[in-house]
Design a protein around this nucleic acid. Structure first.
Lengths: 114, 114
DNA sequence: CTATTCCGTTTCGGAGCCGGATCAGTCTAC
DNA sequence: GTAGACTGATCCGGCTCCGAAACGGAATAG
């Protein structure tokens, strides 16, 4: 398998264009990074941990969790063992959203990679 | 070659995370879509054409050209044959930016696709 | 118990982006 | 030449997001 520079950009172009057009729900790069991190990396995920991993401020994470939580893509849960912590958890809607994104990527990839 | 759903998401995760961290210059999804369209699709590129292709308003394109022009990623040029039109053209800095993006995508892809 | 540290949230002023409506400039039909 | 169509840019009020600082609650050290 071989992914050439032009193919890589075309793939990115097609997927980004797709997400821009069907703007529901449109996530910022940060929000998407948070969503993907929570779904792909092993728990637990805390606000502080996510802020450190993405190298952004804590309020930015809190706000992203607010908006994505409102869209049911993610949910908060208090840590019972240490009630200062907030654990970020997955939802069904979030899984569906990423599943669709995955489908889009694969579909576009098949057009460019051979 | 085979790109599985999980691989696709991991690839997206790695690249998005990379772009979020090195935030200079951070482009919105729309801006990136414009940039990729101008560099990948055949000219000419007008404000109206880009607005139609991305399905966004004209002011959004004008503003995106302002900010990306300020960063030298893109430049405007009046159409000599029809002076109503503005032709969006490529720059060296824009090519470099996309080249680096391409490198990142390929590097991450090689970790996930086998 | 008290002081300190750590956590996530909220406040604050500021900056950026949004689309609808409108504008000035250009081209075209007649 | 004049009316109309069409271009990209600008104005406008509104909305979102930003990070630094301050906050309340929870855990920890002494």
């Amino acid at each position: 398998m071989e992914l050439k520079p032009l193919d890589a950009l075309k793939l990115w172009h097609d997927v980004v264009l797709d997400t821009v057009r069907r703007d529901v729900p449109d996530l910022s790069a940060r929000q998407l990074a948070i969503l993907l991190t929570v779904y792909l990396e092993s728990p637990p995920h805390t606000v502080r941990g996510l802020a450190a991993k993405l190298d952004v401020s804590k309020p930015a994470i809190t706000r992203a969790l607010d908006t994505m939580g409102q869209k049911d893509l993610l949910k908060r849960k208090r840590d019972d063992t240490d009630k200062r912590n907030v654990l970020v958890q997955r939802t069904v809607a979030g899984s569906v959203y990423l599943s669709e994104l995955s489908d889009t990527i694969i579909a576009k990839a098949n057009e460019h990679i051979s």
